[in-house]
Design a protein around this nucleic acid. Structure first.
Lengths: 233, 233
DNA sequence: AATGTTTTTATGTGCATACATAATAAATTG
DNA sequence: CAATTTATTATGTATGCACATAAAAACATT
């Protein structure tokens, strides 16, 4: 019998993780209940609960009332990734960030955009096209649509020095958003802007940001070839 | 003064989120301390703490001892994404999953692989190449290296019907891993296997799985064109 | 056997309290 | 005045206890 006592929930969690990884507790297996484990670990049930809950959040444990706690059979890896402002992302890589506005225009968007953004027919949206650079080399191309009905202040913003990316985060309320990752082939236009060859495979992020019912902005980010995104596990 | 009391930590959290989104509490602003908020919300500090902690986990609040809690200036969006077994991923999309082994061979890996996997010179690794299909159409191409020193049981596995992906998860202990997303252009070989045109932009996932010091497996997944990955925010 | 009802039980959570810890602010010292 | 020490304070967390809740299991009823 293990006589080592575990003081804090982190060390309890670590021991739980060890047992799972070492297959002391095998996939699919039911583990003892909180109360019993708390006694074994020499801590309060509250502490045990916190530890087990945190492991369950990573997907390694499945917990259900009355049914108990069991080791996940197919551990759905829960990867978390931080999506920061472009500038911080570049600076975190130790590179020098710069920004370049390509175009800014008030236009009636193509159908696929107006549908997603629920803009009225013939309603103009602000279209901002810009380039983010790392150490003066193209890093990502930003293609953004802004709904001026929702963000009227954007009308007076030139976006020459501050990217729409950054300005929005600081000035616009929003309630929720959607993100999507994919791979896109470079078109002749995007290729020349990103200084890569036509048809290059580009890592792509599409974002849609909402404030209540209203779509604030829709943006597509095309990253220069070779870009990698590394989530924490 | 708000006389509504909040019973559980979720409703407290929701009200906190509302205040942030409504800019009652503006980015960069210091919010009242836990004890005061607990009184205002009519709950225990423990409950307030749980609520604030859960919001902080999403990146919307920055908390520091003594310094207090403030609304994040650059809300680093913390996206979480579930990386399940390929089969479940396909089935969750309501499609029919199937699997096809392309090749399985014991070979000395190219340098870049043996370096990452820290295999000895001339040491053979198990190389498994397979195709995952959704509704009988190519879904993803799996290119995997297995370290038989670490997973000796893999030697007797044919991987004809059960994918290495699934077999490993069920049978192999591991301590940690790395994931990386990127975009890759299809080569003639991969293009023909994925039934797409040469140079197509393919969404790519690279994974490295470790058990203590030992690399268990290294895998590259090339997804058929059009594949999108959608994290939860 | 099929259906509905009650009991049981493991997790989920709230609360009051106590103390730990990090980091700032204030006080002290050379 | 800069450097160092000390006090203060907001968050972080352990604990015991109580009760809520979901869901399985046992039981009862048709």
């Amino acid at each position: 019998m293990n006589r080592v006592l575990f003081r804090d929930w982190q060390s309890v969690r670590d021991e739980v993780l060890r047992r799972i990884h070492a297959r002391d507790w095998k996939p699919g297996e039911l583990i003892p209940n909180e109360a019993d484990l708390a006694i074994e670990f020499g801590c309060a049930r509250t502490t045990m609960n916190r530890a087990l809950r945190s492991v369950a959040e990573t997907g390694l444990l499945d917990r259900r009332r009355k049914a108990g706690t069991r080791v996940a059979v197919q551990p759905v890896a829960k990867a978390t990734l931080d999506i920061a402002v472009m500038r911080l992302e570049v600076e975190d890589r130790g590179q020098n960030y710069s920004y370049q506005l390509i175009s800014r225009s008030l236009v009636v968007p193509p159908d696929e955009i107006s549908q997603v953004m629920k803009s009225h027919t013939d309603e103009k949206l602000l279209h901002v096209h810009a380039l983010h650079l790392a150490d003066d080399k193209p890093y990502a191309l930003e293609d953004r649509w802004l709904n001026l009905r929702v963000v009227p202040d954007a009308r007076t913003q030139s976006f020459q020095t501050v990217s729409a990316n950054e300005w929005l985060l600081r000035n616009t309320p929003y309630t929720h958003g959607e993100i999507e990752f994919s791979a896109t082939a470079a078109t002749p236009t995007t290729a020349s802007l990103l200084a890569c060859s036509d048809q290059s495979a580009l890592f792509t992020i599409d974002r849609l940001t909402w404030d209540k019912q209203n779509d604030v902005t829709k943006v597509q980010l095309l990253f220069a070839p070779g870009h990698k995104l590394q989530p924490r596990l």
